[in-house]
Amino acid sequence: MTQHESIQADAYPIDAELRDDGTGGPELAWLARSYGDSPRALVFRNPSSDWRLFVVTLPLASRLSLMANPVFAQLTRAWGLNVRFVGVDRDGLAYDFRALLSDRTLALLVELLARRESGETPGEAPDGSRGERTLDVLFEALAREMLTVLERRHEDWHRHLARELRLEPALAGNLFDHGGRYPDFLAALRGALRKGLIEVEFYGRALRSIDLREAAVDARIAALIESSLDPVSLAKLARTGAGRHLGCYNWLRIEPARAAHRAHMLASLPAFADFFADSLLAPEHSASAGFDLKPLAARSQSAHSLHWAGVLRRAIDAGQDRAAIEAIAQRFAVGDNVIRRIWRERPAALGQPPTWHLAQVLRRLHALGERDWPATETAWRTLLAQAVPAEAL
């Protein structure tokens, strides 16, 4: 039987003041109540024999009364852009199913969240169990809908392997989008400050409480996901220094017999983590992945890129470091010495840029002389900023 739960934000002493109409006005008080009472994530443990875990992270649904109306379907779609659906299958592979959140799924989610908020659940008993039963209805309906969608798209599961998601909140590409989680509440806080309804000190305390409770929520969600992943692959990933990168985890986990060579390459070139996950994870399916704008923009689906990705994959899995370095250099059209120097020095300030950005950085490094490479963190940040093409600004 599916075990399910919702993850809520912790309560803080400032909540009573935020929910008081006399503090910042009725709008801020209502949004504060919505912020505190809304679930941050829905968790499904063992939803079926194929899946260990489903986690659906939710932004603050402060406009449920409008979104529940079919006339405002566009609001639902905009809200759904910040919903994340992560699954872990029975083999311990992590998936990012956000692309499978259809209009029907989002509409069902909004309807049930609205019913939960208003308490309009059929069969309600006057014993205070209304919220629990409403949430049970929400979980069961969502579980059935998501399992139905996944069953219909069974042949496409490999296309949704998590490649970019990270479990570190502070890094780009992370699972936790704070800006999209509660924009209305933050806007109301700023508006109350501008109007002089609240003091700067109170505003600071409110922001601090938000940071603390959201950090706690993020930690709980990350711990839930990690508890369902393969511990051996997680240990190998931790030793590489690439961080909690689900794409790299999948790359190690999908073929355990080759994980040692892949972990060695990842530890030697942690800055290439996104590239390895993008280009080398499930490569046998890349040619049939259909139209996808992101790889086209990154030029990762060109004949040149696919050829050298294949050469690189074979070199890494064979444990041939020299051949792997040469393949990476050919893939990015730079000199071998550029890759060798990054391998040797492993500059922490380089970080882990996405593939499209990494290509620009490598070309700039290739154009520089040996003595002109960045020597400080500030110089690296400058080079990274200059390597962003105008089209991305």
Rank of each mutant, 00 (worst) to 15 (best):
Q301T: 13
A333M: 09
G319W: 03
V388M: 10
V232F: 10
A162R: 04
T378D: 13
R153I: 03
L113E: 02
W251G: 01
R116I: 03
A323R: 11
R116C: 09
L197Q: 12
F276E: 03
G241H: 04
L197F: 06
L212R: 14
M1P: 09
E214I: 02
D127S: 07
L362R: 09
P231R: 02
K236S: 10
A315I: 05
L147A: 05
R159C: 04
S288E: 13
L384E: 02
D211I: 11
E5N: 05
L252G: 04
G36T: 07
A235H: 10
L58P: 05
A141W: 00
A287F: 06
V361I: 15
A333H: 11
N337V: 06
L112Q: 07
F202L: 13
T148G: 15
E140L: 14
A289T: 01
I221Y: 02
Q8R: 15
R84F: 00
A238Y: 01
L28H: 03
R153G: 01
A94H: 01
S268K: 15
A390K: 10
S129D: 12
T148H: 13
R40E: 02
F276N: 03
N337C: 01
Q3Y: 05
H264C: 02
F291L: 13
I254H: 02
S102D: 11
W51G: 00
P122L: 14
I328C: 05
L207R: 15
Q3M: 12
H264S: 04
E120I: 09
R258F: 01
I7H: 08
S65H: 11
A162H: 00
G123S: 06
V86S: 09
A260R: 14
A29Q: 12
D103W: 01
E124K: 14
L234S: 05
S65A: 13
W356Q: 09
I328R: 01
P122F: 12
L175K: 04
N46Y: 07
G22V: 00
G310D: 02
A327G: 05
F272A: 08
E370Q: 13
D211H: 09
R322G: 06
W356L: 12
A223W: 03
Q301L: 11
A349W: 04
W157N: 03
L100F: 15
A141G: 14
D211G: 08
H357Q: 15
L368C: 10
A172S: 09
A41M: 05
D15Y: 08
A242S: 15
R371S: 10
R205G: 08
Q8D: 07
L368E: 05
S209D: 11
D317M: 08
L229I: 01
L42D: 04
D37H: 13
R63A: 12
A367K: 13
A99E: 14
A94Y: 02
R77D: 06
R152D: 08
R322S: 14
A94F: 08
W79V: 09
L384N: 05
G241Y: 11
L93A: 10
S233R: 06
L167A: 08
Q320P: 00
P39C: 07
T376W: 08
H264V: 08
I225K: 03
A215L: 03
E124D: 10
C248N: 08
H304F: 10
G92A: 07
L64F: 04
A379I: 12
R364M: 14
I7Q: 11
L383W: 04
G241K: 03
M1N: 05
V137A: 12
L66P: 00
A188M: 09
